[in-house]
Amino acid sequence: MTSPPGVAGPPMPNMLHEDVLSMIGNTPLVDVSNLSPNPNVRILAKMEMQNPFGSVKDRIAKNMIETAEADGRLQPGQTILEPSSGNTGIALAAIAGIKGNPIKIMMPDSVSIERRQMLAIFGAEIILTPGPEGSNGAVARAKALAAKHPEWYFPYQYANDANPRAHFEGTGPEIVRDAPEITHFVAGLGTSGTLMGTGTFLKQHDPTIQVIAVEPPLGERVEGLRNIGDGYIPPVFENWNGYELLDRKRVVRPRESIEWTRRLVNECGIFAGISAGAAMAGAAKLASQIDFGTIVFIVCDGGWKYLSTGAYTDDLDVAEANAESIIYF
Results as ranks from 00 to 15, higher is better:
Gln75Ser: 10
Met47Ile: 14
Asn322Trp: 05
Tyr312Ala: 11
Arg141Ala: 14
Pro5Ile: 09
Phe237Arg: 03
Ser275Ala: 13
Arg253Ala: 06
Ala159Ser: 14
Thr309Met: 14
Gly188Pro: 00
Tyr312Thr: 08
Val32Tyr: 04
Pro108Lys: 12
Val186Asp: 05
Asp247Ala: 10
Ser288Asp: 14
Val111Lys: 09
Tyr312Ser: 08
Glu169Tyr: 09
Ile126His: 09
Asn227Asp: 04
Ala8Lys: 15
Gly188Gln: 02
Ser33Leu: 09
Leu16Gln: 13
Pro76Ala: 10
Trp152Arg: 08
Tyr153Ile: 11
Leu246Cys: 08
Arg226Asn: 11
Val32Phe: 04
Ala321Lys: 14
Met118Asn: 13
Ser3Phe: 06
Glu244Asn: 13
Leu189Phe: 06
Ala281Glu: 04
Phe271Thr: 02
Phe329Gly: 04
Phe154Asp: 12
Leu74Cys: 15
Pro83Asp: 12
Glu215Gln: 15
Leu145Arg: 13
Val252Glu: 03
Leu16Lys: 11
Val139Cys: 06
Asn163Ile: 03
Asn34Thr: 11
Val56Thr: 15
Ala276Phe: 00
Met23Asp: 04
Val139Glu: 07
Ala162His: 11
Gly197Val: 03
Val186Asn: 11
Ser192Leu: 05
Glu324Met: 07
Met12Trp: 14
His17Lys: 12
Phe271Pro: 05
Ile90Ser: 03
Asn87Tyr: 00
Gly282Cys: 10
Lys62His: 02
Gly282Glu: 07
Ser135Trp: 06
Ile258Ala: 11
Ala162Asn: 12
His149Arg: 13
Asn26Gly: 04
Leu245Pro: 14
Ser84His: 13
Thr79Gly: 05
Ile90His: 06
Val299Met: 12
Gly54Trp: 01
Val222Cys: 01
Asp315Val: 07
Thr294Leu: 10
Gly25Ala: 09
Val41Arg: 08
Glu220Tyr: 07
Ser85Lys: 03
Gln50Leu: 15
Leu16Tyr: 12
His149Phe: 08
Pro207Asp: 02
Met12Ala: 13
Gly97Ala: 08
Lys148Arg: 14
Gln289Asn: 14
